[in-house]
Design a protein around this nucleic acid. Structure first.
Lengths: 175, 175
DNA sequence: CCCGGTATTGTCCTTTGGTCCAATGGTGAT
DNA sequence: ATCACCATTGGACCAAAGGACAATACCGGG
C-alpha cells in the first residue's frame, strides 16, 4: 500500500515521523524532500526512515526507490552517500586536516550563513533548478521579490548567475 | 557489459581497484564480498566503487543492485548503512563535502552516449557554467551554432534548460 | 548519385534572467 | 525614537536564453 503524506511545515519532520511510527507501527517511510538537505536526511534515517530522495525525481526514479525499500533496503541519494562515506573516512582515519575541512564547510555553512532565511530558501530552490516563477509560487511571493532575493544571493556569494550558484551550492565549484 | 573479476587475495582490493580504473577509465564496479566487512567497504567506496554487497546474495538481489548502479546510484547494504549513519551522527558537528567528491563525480557516461561529439563538448561546457557566448569562443563557432547544439542536447536528454542539464550531468538528479 | 546524419549559420520572436532606482512596512537593538 | 536590517513589491531596461523555420555544406553508405 502506498500513502502520500504531506508533513506540516511548521513542525519538525522527525517529530511527525515519530508520531507516525507510534500510530502505525511497522511501516516503511520514504521521504521526498523539496530541497534535500544532508543534515535533515541523517536525522530522518536515524529516526527509521528507509528512503530519502529529491521530490522532483522522475517516475522511473521513484519506482526504483520504492523497489529497493520494498526489498528491505535503504535508499540514499548519491551525493549524501558520498558525503557519509567521506565524513566517516575522515573520522576513522583521524585526519583532522583543519584547512581542508574549513574550506569545505565554508561553502555550505559559512557562505550560507551570510544569507537570510528567505535568501537561503530561495537560493536552495534556484540551485535545485527552479525558475523564478516556480520559486515565487513555492514561497507564495511575487516573482519580482524572488528576483530581489536572488540578486542579493548573487552578490553575497559572488555568483554571476543561477547556474554558477547551483554549481557552488552543490559542491562542484569552490569559488 | 558485465564482467566478473576475481581479485587476488594476496593484494589489497583497493590497490587492484586503482589499477582497474587506470586501465579501463570510467567503469562502474560492484564488489561482492565473501565476508562483508564495514571498513573494507568504506575504503572501496571512497576508491570509487559503486556497490558493495554479500557475494551470497540471491539472484533477485543482485539484479536490483545492478539496476541501482546502472541508474547512477550507489548500493550499500543495510547494516553498513546504519553504521555509516550512526558514526556520522556522532561526528556531525562539522561536515566535509567537497574535495574528494569532485574527483569522483563523473557520472555523465550513460546519457552522453546519445550525443554527438560537438554536442557533448558543448553540453559539458554549459554544465560547467559557461554562457553561450563563452562556449562559442571556446569552440571557435558562432553563438547561434552553440544554441543549435544546446537545443539538440536539451531534446536528447530531456532537459528543459541549461540549469537542469547541469544538474543532470553533475549527478544531482537523473531526471 | 541520392539520402541521412552532422555541423554550421541566419533571422525573427518570445520568454527569462538580472540590474538599477525607489518605496513601504515590520522588527529588534541602542 | 532612531537606526539598521529584513521582506516585499513596482517599473523600467537590457542581456541572455530558447524556440520556430530554414538554408548551406561535408561525408559516408546503399
Amino acid at each position: 500500500m502506498l500513502v502520500w503524506l504531506r508533513l506540516q511545515e511548521a513542525r519538525s519532520a522527525v517529530e511527525q515521523l515519530a508520531e507516525l511510527y507510534k500510530a502505525l507501527g511497522d511501516v516503511r517511510v520514504i521521504v521526498l524532500a523539496d530541497q534535500p538537505d544532508g543534515d535533515e536526511a541523517l536525522n530522518l534515517f536515524s529516526a527509521g526512515v528507509r528512503g530519502y530522495c529529491n521530490a522532483h525525481a522522475t517516475a522511473a526514479n521513484l519506482r526504483q526507490v520504492a523497489g529497493v525499500v520494498e526489498a528491505g533496503g535503504l535508499w540514499i541519494g548519491e551525493s549524501l552517500m558520498k558525503r557519509l562515506v567521506v565524513s566517516t573516512q575522515a573520522a576513522i582515519s583521524r585526519l583532522p586536516d583543519a584547512k581542508l575541512l574549513r574550506e569545505s564547510i565554508s561553502v555550505e555553512a559559512g557562505a550560507m550563513s551570510a544569507l537570510t532565511k528567505r535568501e537561503e530558501e530561495v537560493a536552495r530552490a534556484v540551485a535545485n533548478g527552479a525558475s523564478n516563477k516556480e520559486v515565487a509560487r513555492q514561497c507564495g511571493i511575487t516573482e519580482r521579490t524572488v528576483k530581489a532575493h536572488v540578486g542579493a544571493v548573487f552578490q553575497k556569494l559572488k555568483a554571476r548567475d543561477r547556474l554558477h550558484l547551483a554549481l557552488m551550492l552543490n559542491g562542484q565549484r569552490s569559488s
